[in-house]
Amino acid sequence: MNQPPTYNESDLVKLLKERSEKAFSYLYDNYSGALYGVIHSIITDDETARDILQDVFVNIWKKIDSYDPTKGRLFTWMLNIARNAAIDKLRSKAFKEGLKNQPISENVDISGGSAINPAINDVGLRKVVSRLKEEQRVLIDLSYFQGFTHEEIARAMNMPLGTVKTRIRSALIQLRTLIQ
């Protein structure tokens, strides 16, 4: 095997937009693991997570033209594609199993948000989140890992929207210090 080339981010993006297979291969080799970890922190099932990873990379290839570097780094863009794909799956699966009709407040009451996906891996960002205070952990779990909107959370937890927003913000600030 040849030694894979390394690229700086703007060159890599340029090559990807030109549909360079070599650049895409490099992208996969370097980032598939990180993205797979992110997907796995939302979806436990290996097979489903793998399917999502494939969809994510196919979408990255297809949508690279819509990537705007002024709005964020390439990895952030890919991370959000991965998270959104995983959450879409989670919610459609939850729907199939009839879980979606359950008020989320029940899940919150029982085990702090993870009830909807009880056997979740405590890996990656989730591991960091688990070190937050209970109340903050629940909010991050619902919003980031389960994709509920602030409005949905406010309704389910019977809290004013402004309060939900403020608490999620302070949870995120706390999360950041834990990552560091």
């Binding site: 598939s32 693991g33 990895f75 952030t76 991370l79 591991k127 990552i179």
Partner: peptide
């Protein structure tokens, strides 16, 4: 965030 995700990468 990227560094954090890279550290917790899982081989697909």
């Amino acid at each position: 965030l990227e560094n954090q995700a890279m550290e917790h990468a899982e081989a697909p």
